[in-house]
Design a protein around this nucleic acid. Sequence first.
DNA 1: CATGAATGAGAATTCATTCAT
DNA 2: AATGAATGAATTCTCATTCAT
Lengths: 211, 211, 211, 211
Amino acid sequence: MATRSKEEVVQEFRIQSIQDAAMRVIAHKGIAGATMQDIAEEAGVAKGTIYLYFRDRDDLVEKTFETAITQLHGLIDRAWASGNTFEQKLRATIAAKFEFFRENREFFRLYASLRIPEGDIRDERRDRRHRGHCQEQYRARIDLMGQALAEAMERGEVRRMNPKRLALFIIEATNSVVIERIMENESPPEPEDIDLVTSVIFDGIGTRITT
Amino acid sequence: MATRSKEEVVQEFRIQSIQDAAMRVIAHKGIAGATMQDIAEEAGVAKGTIYLYFRDRDDLVEKTFETAITQLHGLIDRAWASGNTFEQKLRATIAAKFEFFRENREFFRLYASLRIPEGDIRDERRDRRHRGHCQEQYRARIDLMGQALAEAMERGEVRRMNPKRLALFIIEATNSVVIERIMENESPPEPEDIDLVTSVIFDGIGTRITT
Amino acid sequence: MATRSKEEVVQEFRIQSIQDAAMRVIAHKGIAGATMQDIAEEAGVAKGTIYLYFRDRDDLVEKTFETAITQLHGLIDRAWASGNTFEQKLRATIAAKFEFFRENREFFRLYASLRIPEGDIRDERRDRRHRGHCQEQYRARIDLMGQALAEAMERGEVRRMNPKRLALFIIEATNSVVIERIMENESPPEPEDIDLVTSVIFDGIGTRITT
Amino acid sequence: MATRSKEEVVQEFRIQSIQDAAMRVIAHKGIAGATMQDIAEEAGVAKGTIYLYFRDRDDLVEKTFETAITQLHGLIDRAWASGNTFEQKLRATIAAKFEFFRENREFFRLYASLRIPEGDIRDERRDRRHRGHCQEQYRARIDLMGQALAEAMERGEVRRMNPKRLALFIIEATNSVVIERIMENESPPEPEDIDLVTSVIFDGIGTRITT
DNA sequence: CATGAATGAGAATTCATTCAT
DNA sequence: AATGAATGAATTCTCATTCAT
């Protein structure tokens, strides 16, 4: 079994609380506006301390992204596994996202910037940083959903179409409502939004008969 | 006929070429990473020259946003007007977006950041800046689409549901594919993606019969 | 007789109106705060035009100083010549200063900075600039007053003491009231201040008998 | 005994040495000409360090003013208290000023600019800055002297006249000799100048008998 | 380990000066 | 002669990062 020394526990705690602080500050001031000083104050440590646990600012931001995304993905995975049909899975997944962002409003800015990395797209160095992990995770999630869709197509639950494209479409369309709910002052009740999204995704908006 | 003095023409040309440069640099380095020096060099003018045409960095970024978005919206409006049924309009609109971003790849970063403004969400001052115009335009587009949807519902072309929510959903879902195409090295042919998006939006992904 | 061509007249007019503008702007914004743009606008000419008449900013400021001071000194000289006794001359001189600054409130800042030049005291280059002319004029006035005092001492009108030191003292003491009047919102009537100054200078503040 | 932690001592030392550097640089280059870089170099610290102790350039200049003026006023107050008659007090005060400026030649430029603030006289914002403290102190000193004069008038030591006006006159007249001594390469011995000033102020320059 | 004072490279902005028209 | 757009050096201020305590 994994036995961790007291030092390791303390270390992990530090890392986590710094990342939490980073998330809150970034949520408040934006990624560019969040200074190391801000984050250190929010975390209740000295600026220098952050550098004991993170190589530099980029490293902190990246790791903060990853941790939070991993958390979210854990929730989503559990939600996904809970349903039987594709529709059930989708509903549960959307509900999971709603819940996560209800509890972690701060995270939305990190999440939104996940798709569009800050730096130069063509800058080779970036491939080993933000994109390296986060964009990769993003791709992986799309692939996962794509696979699930392909299987649902096999089973006849879902019409046959390009599954990866469809996955992307569904994920982003879903996210749009999540982000909207965060930015709004008051949103419709969650079930209502969940119904709308699943309903449109499954049955479309049209009135004509589908064969 | 358009009567503009030579000075006005030169001025407009300068403004446009600086904005174009800004767009390229922002696309390359991100909004936070784009320095005035970068933009000036890209535009082939001196740093100080930019300040002859834009109050400050924020003003430049904002105006660059606006100009590009206005361009895009012009295209979209024309596309929208070209169709008869809601479906035709939607297809044309998606095609217009594809075309615009095919010609203006740099713009995607500006466009993406439109939804999530930089600074503090709760900061009142932001209301008069980026958000002031761009977020407003974004809202206006959603309202427009919402109205069109409401009318289509009246006509029986579209199922009855919350039209504003649906508008948001459709716009963002559409955008997701647009952005994806930009980030990809090679995408499926445009018509294929247009088909997928319209088809899903209209008929859903499900196989069951809709009434 | 001095015959001036039309060009010379126009030229002098330009020079004068630029200097006037400079005086107003400096009075309003301070020497450091007055930009060439400000002065050009105030003068109703283009920035570049100023450089046709003045070598550079320093030259403009210096010449503006000089012209105004020469004006003031003309007034003072006339006032001085108008009196017979030293006391009469002094009273007339103070009255002249009051009048000049009542009409040219803007000038006070230039005048005040006359004593303490802006740049490095030890900077040799400055000797040929601001100090070159203005400090020189300042010295010359003190010498003049010193000489007048020496003569008054000869005539027994004034006690024997270091005349140059005394001249300095009288000039600055007088100026202090002039500047004060400018900075105040409402001052005592001019004659009152003139009485106070001459009376103190002549008879001192003490109550004991002077021999 | 003064109990200050080591940090406080270091901090005060830093503040003091930066202000000292600022004083020297301003004396050398004038207020407008003194850059943060200059001051940092003179103080032997990095530019950024200054901002750890002063909000911005204005804050540094203002605090430097204040500290030096407070020092000077301390000397003056002690000198003033040391005399019995008004004349003794005045002599001691002048001597104190001479001494202070002999030791702090650099300060004269700050001191001189105290009367004429930099910016727009009518600018309301200035009331909370330079003027805010320093002009206030200047006014306070004049009031103090005015009161002392009023009392001396009561006691019959000084003739009856507008005490505030007189105070202003005496202070500025005195200062004029102080500043002159600084600007001169070689001045008369201090006692000589002190004698001249007190003598003129008390007995005037005239030869006629005062009642 | 933790700290936070110090650093200095780098960013935005201003403005005196030039020069093509 | 007059203009004013363009320039870029110079200035203020910020903030990621280091390192002595």
